[in-house]
Design a protein around this nucleic acid. Sequence first.
DNA 1: CGTGAGGTTGAAGTGGATCAACACCAGTGG
DNA 2: CCACTGGTGTTGATCCACTTCAACCTCACG
Lengths: 240, 240
Amino acid sequence: MQTVRKDIHNSQLPILCQSCEARHQGICGAMSAEQLLAISKHTRRVRREPGQEIMADAMPIAAYANVLKGVVKLTKVLEDGRQQVVGLQFAPDLLGRPFASESRVTAETASDVELCMIPKAPLEALMTAGGPVEHRIMMQALRELDEARDWMVTLGRKTAAEKVASFLYLLATHIDPTEEEALVTFDLPLSRADIADFLGLTIETVSRQLTKLKAEKVIEIANYRHVTIADLAQLRLRCG
Amino acid sequence: MQTVRKDIHNSQLPILCQSCEARHQGICGAMSAEQLLAISKHTRRVRREPGQEIMADAMPIAAYANVLKGVVKLTKVLEDGRQQVVGLQFAPDLLGRPFASESRVTAETASDVELCMIPKAPLEALMTAGGPVEHRIMMQALRELDEARDWMVTLGRKTAAEKVASFLYLLATHIDPTEEEALVTFDLPLSRADIADFLGLTIETVSRQLTKLKAEKVIEIANYRHVTIADLAQLRLRCG
DNA sequence: CGTGAGGTTGAAGTGGATCAACACCAGTGG
DNA sequence: CCACTGGTGTTGATCCACTTCAACCTCACG
C-alpha cells in the first residue's frame, strides 16, 4: 500500500556520521573524539521516503537512530484500529527507547528522512559507561516528557480550532532545528490523516479548521502541503 | 480555601530516610551505603494533607521529593483556567524535574501523602557524579514518558466510558506499590473534579460514567470515594 | 483517459458539555 | 437542638462542537 523502500547507498561511506558530528548536536556532541571514532565504525547513514516503518510497537529493537533531517512520527494503536500519534521527532533527536528490549511505539517516517543508524550494543555500552552520553540521552528523555505533557493539555482541554493552531505553531517552532525562532513558511510533514491522529480529531475537522484559518488570513496554503504563516501573533493567540 | 498545612515534625529524627531505604525502591535503592548516609543528613520526612501544593509551575525548585505514600497529581493550566492533570505520581516516584531551574508543572497532593524531601544541590551532585543514581532517575523519566504516551491515546482517542474505565484500571494497578497485581478495592485519591481534569471530561460526565459502571455491576462505590472492582476482566475490556 | 489516493465540503446525527436543580454532609453558630 | 452555609457529588434537560456519512474535487500515474 505504501511506496517501495529505497535504501539509498550513498550512505555507507562517511567514516564519521558527518552531518551529525558537524552540527555538534544530538548525542554525538556529547562524545569524545575517541568515542566518536569508535562508534562511527558501526553507524550507517540511511535515507527513507515518507511512510516507512522504522520501529514497530512491541517488536525488538535492533538499533537506535539519530534523526538528521525530516520528521518521524511515533504512533500507538488501539485493538480496534483507532490511532494516536504520540510524538514527533525532529533532528537531532535520537530514536529508540533506551534499555528496553522492545519498542512501546511504532516509529514511521512522516516526510523524507535521513537517519544515522546506530546498533543497539555499541550505543548502550557508551550509555552504561555513564558520563556525558547517558546524560545527554536523559536530557532528551526529560524534554520529550515535557513535550508529551504539554501535548496532553492540548489533547484533553483544547477545542478543535485551538488544536490545529497549536499544531501549526509546534511545526513553525520545531521543523527547522537550525532556526532559533519560528519559521513562517514550511511544508506540512504530515497528511491530513496523520494530523488528525496527532490532534485526536477527524480528517474532516482538521480540513475545516485549516480552511477557516486560511479564510481568516492567519495562514496561506498552497498545494495542500505548503503553509505560510501570515500572522504568527494571531496564530499564537489561537493556541488557547 | 484549603485546610491548613500541618508539617508534622515527627519527621526530623530518622537519620536515614528509613521507609525509603527499607524498601530499596526509588532512587535510594541505587545508592551506596556512603551515599545514603551522606544524603540522609539533608533529607527531611514530611506529611501533607490533600490539596497542598508541593511545586508550582514556573517557580524555582528548591528541592526534590520522594513519594513514600499516597498520590501526587501533576497539573497544567491554560490562561483561561482550563486545567489538565498530566500525571499521577505514586510511591516510590521522585518528584521534581531534574536539571531544570524551574518546574514545568504544578505538583499537588491528591491524597494524604508522605514525602522525603531532598534539597536540590546534594541530589544533583549525586546525579552529575553519574553512575547508578543518574541511571535510576533516567529509568524513571523513561517510564513516565511511556505512561504519558499511553495516556495520550486515552485522551485523544477514547470515549468517556473508556476513559473512566482506564482511570480505574490505572489506579487498581498503581495505587499500591507493594502489590504486584491489580488491587480490587481502594479509595479514590482524586475528587471528581480532579478525575475530570485527568480525563479531559467534565465532572458530570465522570459522575454519570461511574454510576453507569455501578449499575452494570462492574464496580461498587461506597461513600463516594471507596471503590471495589467487582469484575476486573470486564473493566479491562471496557478500557478500549 | 481511467483509476485511486488524498483532500474538501455539505447535511445530518450524537456524545459529551452546559445549565440548572437537588441531595448529602460537615461545620458553625444562634 | 435546628437553621444556615459551603463544598462535593448526582441527576435531568437542553445544546452544540465534533463526528459520521456522503458527494465531489484534484492531481499523479499507469
